[in-house]
Write a protein that binds this DNA or RNA. Structure first.
Lengths: 269, 269
DNA sequence: TGACACCGTATCATAATATGATACATAAAA
DNA sequence: TTTTATGTATCATATTATGATACGGTGTCA
């Protein structure tokens, strides 16, 4: 089989991880056959790996349908992650205050390669789409948070990112023109914040301010999503933005930049 | 080596998972040696497994200190979990409303073997310990949520649980006497809710109401934690409890009971 | 400065472990 | 009923993981 490399790579472990990754928002429970199909592994391998994950408590199994599901252990991993991320402890209390103050949903996003990951969400009111987005991974260029973060990196690197990083069309209103995205980011360089309309969801406006680290670069952003029905661009800049920036600045100074990086493939999901 | 069983158990995968589980609130970043020590694996195995996890993007690595950390992928797993858990989608919108209404922190907890797992948290105000508790796993008997859930199971099973399930002492005020815990749970059988004082944190009061499924049993609970400085038991019963119960009942009817169970060892952490 | 201990990294011959083809059983579809 | 698909179990083979060993770098104690 495709031995990824040399002797310090254990294929069995990697294959097991592929099974875990077979689950997502569209595939919440999978049969053995589906698991095999989605992971690209043959039936026998899938059988053994899934059984191992089951025995280790990483997968639940419905005794009737024999379908597999993510177990609570997946949340325990998130718990461990939270403690390991130095930014989380710093930011959460301030984000709580911000969310209470604004009365709108506030998110914390971090850069992860060419994507951003939502690390924490403080929901307020009836959130349009009430689903949690913790752990959601999106192309950085297509999000206000990603653009805010990119606005803090050196010009050359920034331009390279704008030219090469992935983009995805979520709604009819999603910007797919890189020139337009460049304008948006350059505007953010000047303004110190990024704002985008209807990129992810129709009638949704996102504002984000970068959380700047010691090196002057942002690795994260505070983001706020509001409805275009009740908010205008001007009103956001006037009422939300100042508080958003205060919060981001309050988090910034003591933040140890996050230097580690996994070299996983930049999967174009 | 200790082949857990037969031919449908892949030891390498299980060992890799042990590395992941080596990270927790007290061990947020680990060197290779520490990883080996905590997982109980020898240096070579740890080296290979950690390297594989790194290549697959499951671990980050600080290029200077060479220490490993949980990666963003751990949050992506949580994301997949949220979509797979039918209760989450049902409950979150109602919990948001409840949290806004109460102005206090609201949690969703699920039973997982003899422990409970916090699945979602809606923080309000300055939460005493602002840390997130999503994914935190606690002995069911030591929590208000666990007692609320246990109050809905048949008597025989309930008694067996009270006699055998694990207990842990978190504060000087934590109840370790099973007779007392039995009283607390039997009271919950009558009242329909559980309340506990200073079990996890000093001066913290927890109230929980069970979310009852089709089979009449609860697999989850809505929980609220407040400060004993500003709340008395009576005030909680008067002001918080009714809303808490309404919310739990609103979630209950349409909830498909969660039948799958991993057979992992009941680790006494 | 040198000696020592520790850690991360790399290599390699060996055998233990994972492999995947195959067969059986059960359940769903025709 | 027959047919198809899916979950489960078995087994001989060689591919794959193993772990002992060695090397280079770094920090610590004399």
């Amino acid at each position: 089989m495709e031995s990824k490399q040399n002797t310090l790579y254990i294929a069995s472990l990697a294959k097991g991880l592929r099974l875990l990754r077979a689950f997502d928002e569209g595939n919440t429970e999978l049969s053995l056959a589906e698991l095999a199909q989605r992971s690209g592994l043959d039936k026998s391998a899938t059988q053994r790996l899934a059984n191992t994950l089951y025995m280790e408590g990483m997968l639940d199994k419905d005794p009737d349908t024999r379908r597999f599901r993510p177990s609570h252990a997946w949340l325990q991993l998130a718990y461990a992650y939270y403690w390991s991320d130095p930014l989380v402890g710093q930011a959460i209390p301030k984000l709580i205050d911000l969310a209470q103050d604004l009365g709108e949903t506030v998110n914390l996003a971090e850069i992860s390669g060419d994507h951003i990951v939502y690390v924490s969400r403080l929901p307020c009111k009836r959130t349009y789409f009430a689903a949690t987005i913790i752990g959601r991974r999106l192309p950085a260029l297509s999000t206000s948070a990603g653009r805010a973060i990119l606005s803090t990196v050196p010009e050359a690197e920034r331009n390279a990112a704008i030219d090469t990083w992935p983009i995805r069309k979520f709604t009819p209103g999603t910007t797919t023109d890189r020139a337009q995205i460049r304008d948006s980011i350059e505007q953010a360089v000047v303004d110190g914040f990024a704002i985008s309309t209807g990129q992810m969801i129709l009638n949704e406006i996102g504002v984000a301010t970068p959380i700047i680290g010691h090196d002057g670069r942002a690795h994260a952003a505070v983001q706020c999503s509001v409805s275009a029905h009740t908010w205008s661009r001007e009103k956001i800049v006037q009422d939300i933005l100042p508080k958003l920036q205060d919060t981001a600045n309050a988090i910034s100074p003591s933040f140890q930049p996050y230097r580690g990086t996994a070299q996983g493939p930049s999967d174009p999901d």
